[in-house]
Design a protein around this nucleic acid. Structure first.
Lengths: 326, 326
DNA sequence: CTGTTAGCGCTTTCAG
DNA sequence: CTGAAAGCGCTAACAG
């Protein structure tokens, strides 16, 4: 049943049906009722595709994500979805696994008018090849920002957060603070590593040790910590750039007979809910995950509505949550 | 730049451009090249909305989920997305928080032709009011299935899994086995509770104790276990219907001075990756999360392609993973 | 092998 | 306040 059938049924024109559908003012109450009755009668639902084609807006947002299985991402997506829903938008989720090919494919949805804009949360979206694909389409970088790109962003100050964390550990008399970092394709990895190095220098700690995890999972954290243990001198503290990595670090430490926090202090990053219920509870740097998502949507919609407004780079606060692991 | 511009540029008709775009056979190589050149020249990207309107298929799938933050859901979604991508489909994610209002709104996308079908993973989608909304549209119930509904489903045998678990605990000389269940709006809650009761009866255990968690989070697990402890006799084993609940149970148990597994055995459900890295590692009932997602997409596409094929109810195997928590 | 034409279902001027 | 008509960009008969 199309709008035409409804029009026929109500004895009016397509235009009038469209008017009541979109709540345009200036439709006489009784014709409005007639139309509404007809709509109800054949329980008509408008074809959204046709509407989108005609109005040239889909009210859909694309979200590019490396791995929804990572609780941090899931929480941000939840924020994105909540705000999108509140503003009458839907979200299209694309796992890119940071693979250029998949990213490029998804981005066809932008050019294809299937989505009105894109929020990226993954490493690869900053690659020169991809920025070209996105071109001038509305785009917000979330949690991972390349400042040289002309798109809005919502992030935290990763360098400051990492620096503060290492200083905090040093303040707790830890002298051999190791960093368990992630894939260096992420920009935040560089930023946090820079913060780590800066703090070591400031605190005049010469001991440094960095391991790179293959993914943001417990298993990768376990493997990374084991590698750390094979080095000449073992650390007395580990700063992991993700809570999941920290979970693995603690597991591997206990397994190796170390006590946490007595022998090894551990700090995570992200502040996922789970951290408070671990044994021991995990000290972590909390990112405003939900807010990161919410603001991303808000900036994206602003760009969609005012395409020529300049990019906005928003930096949200982080917070250290002190618990027993350190 | 529309298909018309390309046609003009290549000196052919729109139809021919469309043919090369869709790789239809029977286009002379040199005209094909001309078109391709033109497409390249103005880097034309087809308007997917227009195509979708015309062909009456969007190649998009709707996924209704209660909470992406729950790792079990996230893993299933990952499976859904992977298979969808492999088959040339995209997914639209809708958090429903099991709220009727939001579900109904999302389902407008079905009637509105924005999506070709829907996969539901939440409790509310079985409500009579909603099944009406979905009507005859292609629909697969994933992980949560109401057999009285005429839609395909992919699940595990929740009753058998729960029964087996309780028997296993009884076999380990546990005599006071408590169940930490979730929201009873979920059908699996009923099924697992039925399995729990059946096993108790079979094993001739008269002691039973059930607590209902408010959500599938660690915090809810902690609260539930605390309530359990306030009862006259404390359990010597807890079967939690979700790994996240189990994490909370263990946390609360250690906090109360109980040793796990000596004083309290704990078994979870779902088999999320994290469970292997907890302290102690968690015994759990593993659901084939990825496969649940993959098969859901496959059944949905089958239904989309053959609308009159009968519904298929697929039951996937589960697996007990024995670890130190029990 | 290629072009012409007729829509998909909707919104939106422009007249009346 | 309502209707007629044009057209969003594409695909698919049907001719030629």
């Amino acid at each position: 049943m199309s709008i035409e059938k409804v029009a026929l049924l109500a004895g009016v024109s397509k235009a009038t049906v469209s008017r009541v559908l979109n709540e345009h003012p200036g439709v006489r109450p009784d014709t409005r009722d007639k139309v509404l009755a007809a709509i109800n009668f054949c329980d008509y639902q408008p074809n959204l595709l046709a509407r989108q084609l005609r109005t040239a807006q889909s009210h859909m947002l694309l979200v590019l994500i490396s791995d929804i299985t990572n609780p941090f991402c899931a929480n941000v997506v939840q924020g994105i979805e909540a705000e999108a829903e509140a503003q009458g938008y839907h979200i299209l989720l694309c796992h890119t696994a940071s693979q250029m090919r998949r990213e490029a494919a998804s981005l066809g949805l932008l050019a294809g008018k299937v989505v009105d804009g894109v929020i990226t949360m993954d490493a690869a979206s900053c690659l020169p090849g991809l920025t070209e694909f996105i071109g001038d389409f509305p785009w917000v970088q979330c949690a991972e920002c390349d400042p040289s790109i002309n798109a809005s962003s919502v992030t935290i100050d990763n360098l400051a957060a990492a620096r503060d964390t290492v200083r905090y550990l040093a303040g707790k008399r830890r002298r051999r603070i190791a960093l368990v970092n992630s894939d260096m394709r992420y920009l935040y990895s560089h930023q946090r590593e820079a913060g780590y190095r800066a703090a070591l220098e400031e605190m005049e700690l010469s001991w440094a040790s960095i391991e790179y995890a293959e993914s943001l999972t417990c298993e990768a954290g376990i493997a990374a910590f084991r590698r750390l243990l094979q080095r000449p001198e073992r650390p007395d503290a580990v700063f992991a750039v993700s809570d999941m990595l920290a979970v693995g670090v603690i597991h591997a430490a206990l397994e190796a007979g170390l006590r946490v926090p007595e022998d090894l202090a551990v700090v995570g990053f992200d502040g996922i809910a789970l951290t408070g219920s671990l044994n021991p509870p995990l000290t972590t740097i909390e990112q405003p995950m939900h807010q990161l998502g919410v603001r991303s949507v808000q900036l994206l919609l602003k760009k969609i509505r005012q395409p020529h407004a300049p990019a906005i780079h928003e930096v949200l606060p982080w917070k250290r949550i002190e618990r027993a692991s350190c």
